[in-house]
């Protein structure tokens, strides 16, 4: 699979861009948090595209963000 570059992304319609990034993020997140993958991906997709592209190239920062999302979700669920 070709890497998702900023120029390839920019060539896509705006509403497609998040979907394209999500398709890349989802399998990576699914490896770590199978049950929460859809939710975590949705949360991360609210981040700027430029930052998301950097995360796709940096497993360390992606995993840090995934763990942050899980912590936010758990705190949110604990409040309910």
């Amino acid at each position: 699979q070709e890497p998702l570059t900023a120029s390839r992304l920019a060539a896509a319609p705006l509403h497609e861009q998040k979907q394209m990034i999500g398709e890349r993020l989802y399998p990576l997140i699914h490896d770590v948090h199978t049950q929460l993958a859809g939710k975590i991906t949705g949360m991360l997709l609210e981040i700027d595209n430029s930052e998301l592209l950097l995360m796709l190239e940096s497993p360390e920062s992606l995993h840090a963000k995934i763990e942050e999302a899980v912590a936010v979700l758990q705190a949110h669920q604990a409040m309910e």
Partner: peptide
Amino acid sequence: RKSTLNPNAKEFNPRSFSQPK
């Protein structure tokens, strides 16, 4: 530091990903 991530974000539905059985 408070996280900027939103726990109410819409869930993402992948088009192409299929779960390994």
